[in-house]
Design a protein around this nucleic acid. Structure first.
Lengths: 242, 242
DNA sequence: GAGTGGTCTAGACCACTGC
DNA sequence: CAGTGGTCTAGACCACTCG
């Protein structure tokens, strides 16, 4: 028997993509609550169980957060519980500690070949370049170069970065409505060049952990490309495999 | 109103832990199929939906694998689809390629302080130490020191390692019934010492990616501690954040 | 107490696999 | 065709939060 519907898609997946589109369109902002299951079931003309299954999957993907008795919320980097999902650097011993971000530069530029390819934009399109240092316990531990899609962050400048006492991704959400949903990282070990060594207070040639990241917003749209150099003497990069 | 049942646990969680215990006890071996949902529902005296929810969660945790029309199976490292979940080294360009494992040593020893602590065993308890090299495209790229709980791998020796043309974790499953369920890794950048540099064919002092791993079997029992040193000139360590 | 998500059930039907 | 997992529904009841 031939498959009659090669594009078969269950109802709950369609609901999922409808909710996904609502998220993309900004109908509900990060941290805000979405309508209750019964309301959504009425809106989409399906049973509550079908909405439930759609939401379950989106919660598993960290797009939504369920809180019994309160409602379902759009996931946000403001939530401290999800705060260390993207920063994997842990101290060798002692309690985890939020780093202090020290922005150095915030420049507007035109995308070169490589940045354009990674972000999926045209060469020459506007980008923003941020350079910063992260300090743990007052010690410079990470330096980062961050490229952003220029059109998505109008008005972003060094002053804003310096004022903001929250994580970068929190700032992006609150100020620009841009939520980073997932990211891919590539890790390598490299030797510190002169400039990096100076900023990090280590000897030239010291082994550093290079972390390249592409971060995606809703719809798998690449919004950010960054490269970090981590000093891993007092810290390590933590990863869970399962 | 005070909580009357602070230890409230839904039915499906109890089913989950029953299935989990059956897995631990080896009632169903890795790769084998478990009873159908209706059978399990009858056995546990619950509805099929409740069994379903339990299995759903265990599939999400990579303990079980569902295959529509065929049944539900105990997850296995033999399955090529899950083969690269624990080996995160990818080539800078070109297709992914399985490495060639070259075992160098396989020794029986007594656990020292550190290994005992990590594996949760008594100092002096038997352990196995394996040293090996992984080659990609005929180039040594990774060296590893692997400590195993001695009592769980009776008879393991260098000859067995050399004969086995499968991944280490596959071997553990097929030969010893030990399945690694999850692992924690700590990554750092370090400089190559003389011995490592020689084995890897790089200059002394070259920056290497140090990957420490603790691997756990069912019941979160630490079975393995390993440290790898990766050459990251032609490869990178890949990670997904979400 | 009203409203939310969470659990559990029972039943009907669909999609996929293999004999 | 029988057997498996996958979807969808409807309804009852439970646990949690807040006013």
């Amino acid at each position: 028997m031939p498959r009659e519907s090669p594009t078969f898609s269950p109802l709950y997946r369609q609901i999922k993509s409808l909710i996904g589109r609502a998220l993309e369109s900004g109908e509900w902002r990060p941290g805000a609550s979405i309508p209750s299951e019964v309301e959504l079931a009425q809106r989409f003309r399906v049973s509550q169980g079908t909405v439930r299954k759609a939401i379950d999957e989106m919660a598993a993907e960290n797009l939504l957060v369920r809180r019994q008795g309160k409602g379902t919320f759009v996931a946000s980097h403001d939530d401290p519980r999800t705060h260390f999902r993207f920063l994997r650097l842990m101290p060798n011993s002692g309690a985890v500690e939020a780093p202090l971000s020290v922005p150095l530069e915030c420049l507007r530029a035109k995308a070169g070949q490589e940045v354009a390819r990674v972000l999926g934009i045209e060469p020459g399109a506007p980008v923003i370049l941020i350079r910063r240092v992260l300090k743990f316990a007052d010690r410079p531990t990470v330096i980062e170069e961050i490229y952003l899609r220029g059109e998505a962050f109008p008005g972003l400048n060094l002053a804003i970065l310096k004022e903001a006492h929250r994580s970068l991704y929190s700032l992006f959400e609150v100020r620009f409505g841009v939520r980073m949903v997932r990211a891919e990282e590539r890790l390598r070990a490299v030797a510190a060049d002169r400039g990096s060594a100076e900023l990090l207070g280590v000897a030239e040639g010291t082994a550093l952990l290079s972390v390249e990241r592409i971060a995606f917003s809703y719809g798998d749209k690449a919004m950010e490309w960054r490269r970090g150099l981590y000093v891993t003497r007092e810290h390590f990069y933590h990863n869970e495999l399962s």
